[in-house]
Design a protein around this nucleic acid. Sequence first.
DNA 1: AGTTTGACAGTAT
DNA 2: GATACTGCCAAAC
Length: 131
Amino acid sequence: MNAFERPDMDASSFRLRVYQIVEAIPVGRVTTYGAIARALGQPRAARIVGGALSRVPAHLDLPCHRVVNRVGYLSGGWSFGHPDVMKTHLLEEAVPFRDEWHVDLESCFWDPSADFDSASSDEVDDFYHIA
DNA sequence: AGTTTGACAGTAT
DNA sequence: GATACTGCCAAAC
């Protein structure tokens, strides 16, 4: 299911491109608002990414819990009612945490631009030893 | 059509 | 590190 195929949405909107990337985030990995913005060629639009994720159409069923801010904090958790909900999802995917509310970006960060450019997904998966 | 608003990020302290 | 302050820009009002 690709967000661009939704007939009920405006394919020219920035939001839609954000959704396309979010759906591509591998299980057990996370990315940041800024990384997504850079992958879209707009390094300054990190806030827009957050704005887009705050109103994701429910039917798209995106893994939006895999998006954290640049220090690994679960800033989006409050939209789930409480960050603890988001944390639970991540723990189920074996995403490593540094402390109560920060994921360990060093080991599970996923760069959208790297995947969308040249790097073959096989090489990336091998590098991170994805099962 | 002008203003306000963020699930952010960079810099400075 | 942790705050505080400032730029950012599409969207919602």
